[in-house]
């Protein structure tokens, strides 16, 4: 049953945005109030052994608290609440809002606790282990996340603009091919490109200070570049064999044979809200090649699973698939 859109939007806004903003504001206020009693610099990073190994001025801690506490919630709210307003909803929307609240509590508790235990210290190297702060932060984040989930109404997946395609007539013996390149949204490529550049810059910087760590950054760069290659562009093809979606590199590749297609349609995708992100995504009963928000081709297999691809001109592709499926059904009597 679809929950009332008004309730869904209101609760999601509270959980995804208002709670994180309040939690972060309290954390920043406490840290500001303690500025006079903190060592300079303060410890802001702890090693695996438990002792502090990174130090900076106290304002850095405050800046990190604000950024870490607000960035995810603001992005999440900006990416999902406009879609909820248009009537989209579903369990992933609900989960992402709860995640946003839980993460902000984790960040706020850990960063604030880290400064609280340094109050009155002359030298931050004497700061105790961060482990209790982490454990309490995780527990508090989990509790707030669970409450954030519970206060939102239960909701079935609702896809805005979902419509089954009218079959495009295909004559017996006729051969058809529809193909189109699905490309990633420019902002997505910018984000991935910027991430790649940051990892390269950190790798180069680490080369001069800690060569062993440079290799870690190099490996990270390779992962990011592979992500770019696997996200940049896919060729979507509909022909007598069914639907084939192939990455520019040839892999990954998704194929649904015509015989396994039950129906084709279109509908709007909200990457974060429906799939929890972008790229090759999995949601219940659904595989997605999600390169942007907006209109997408949705194909239902005979076993009930879906393949979703964000490709332009999806209505033409869906109509052609329906036409091919119909012709196949006709020829089999």
């Amino acid at each position: 049953m679809a929950a009332s859109a008004r309730t869904v939007v209101a609760r999601a806004t509270w959980v995804a945005l208002v709670v994180p903003v309040v939690v972060t504001a309290v954390a920043v206020a406490l840290q500001l109030a303690w500025l006079g009693s903190l060592p300079d610099p303060v410890a802001i990073h702890w090693g695996l052994a438990g002792g502090p190994n990174g130090f900076a001025a106290a304002w850095v801690s405050i800046a990190i608290t604000s950024a870490a506490g607000l960035l995810l919630p603001v992005l999440m709210a900006a990416a999902t609440i406009p879609a909820l307003r248009r009537g989209a909803q579903g369990p992933t929307f609900r989960f992402m809002a709860a995640l946003s609240a839980g993460m902000s509590v984790l960040m706020g508790v850990v960063a604030t606790w880290a400064l609280a235990m340094q109050r009155g210290l002359a030298d931050a190297t004497a700061a105790p282990s961060i482990t209790p702060a982490l454990l309490v932060g995780l527990a508090a984040g989990a509790v707030v996340g669970a409450v954030g989930w519970a206060v939102q109404p239960g909701q079935e997946q609702v896809i805005v603009g979902a419509s089954a395609a009218e079959p495009m007539p295909v004559r017996p013996g006729e051969r058809v091919l529809w193909t189109r390149t699905a490309t990633a949204a420019p902002w997505l490529m910018l984000l991935l490109g910027a991430t790649a550049l940051v990892t390269v810059a950190l790798g180069v910087a680490a080369w001069f200070t800690d060569p062993a760590r440079a290799w870690t950054w190099l490996a990270t760069t390779v992962v990011v570049v592979l992500a770019i290659a696997g996200t940049g562009a896919y060729t979507v093809r509909v022909d007598g064999d069914g639907l084939t979606v192939t990455a520019a590199l040839g892999l990954p590749r998704f194929h649904v044979p015509l015989a396994e297609i039950d129906a084709a349609g279109t509908g709007d995708v909200v990457g974060l809200g429906e799939f929890g992100g972008y790229g090759i995504r999995h949601a219940p009963h659904t595989t997605g090649v999600i390169l942007r928000n907006g209109p997408a081709l949705r194909v239902r297999r005979t076993d009930g699973r879906y393949l979703v691809v964000t490709v332009d001109d999806a209505p033409v592709a869906a109509a052609l698939i329906e036409g091919l499926v119909e012709r196949r059904a006709r020829s089999r009597g």
Partner: peptide, 9 residues
């Protein structure tokens, strides 16, 4: 891009 051909034509 859509291509349709009919070998019977």
């Amino acid at each position: 891009m859509l291509i349709r051909i009919d070998p019977g034509s």
